[in-house]
Amino acid sequence: MRQQVDALGIKGSILVIKNGKIMLNYALGNNTDTSYLINSVQKSMTAAIVMRLVQEGKLSLQDKLSQFYPQIPGANKVKIKNLLAMTAGLDLKPGTKLGRKHFISDSDNIRCDAAKTIFEPHLLNKWHYSSLNYVYLCGIASQITKKSYERLFRQTYVRPLRLRQTEFLWSKPGKIIASHLVPGMIYRKGRYDVVKHKAALKDAHNELGAGSVVMSNHDLAKVIHYLLVGKLLTKKSRMLLYRAGPPAYYNGGFYNNNKLQTKTANGAGQGYYTFMRSTNNAQTILIIQSNKTREGEFDQLKGQINQIMLELLGRKARSANMFG
Rank of each mutant, 00 (worst) to 15 (best):
L84W: 11
S278Y: 06
K43A: 04
A244F: 06
C112Y: 14
G271F: 05
N258Y: 15
S66H: 08
K11S: 15
P94M: 07
Y134P: 01
G12H: 11
I49A: 02
K11L: 09
G253S: 12
L286H: 02
L232N: 03
K302R: 15
K172G: 04
R111M: 15
T156N: 04
D113N: 15
L201K: 05
D108N: 12
R162E: 13
D193K: 09
I305D: 09
S179P: 01
M322A: 13
Q155E: 07
P121E: 10
S212L: 00
G9Y: 06
V78Y: 09
Y36R: 12
G89D: 01
H225K: 13
R111W: 11
D193W: 12
N251K: 02
L227M: 04
S66A: 14
Q71G: 12
L124K: 05
K292A: 10
L15A: 14
A320T: 03
I140E: 05
G12Y: 14
L152G: 03
R52L: 14
L228M: 13
P121C: 02
G139Q: 07
D33I: 06
N257H: 08
P160G: 04
P247F: 11
S107A: 11
G99C: 14
L228Y: 02
G174P: 00
V50A: 11
K77T: 13
D91L: 10
R164W: 07
H122M: 14
L313A: 09
R151S: 03
N76R: 15
D6E: 12
I72W: 06
N321L: 12
L59A: 12
W127C: 02
S319R: 02
S237M: 05
H180L: 01
S212F: 00
K231D: 00
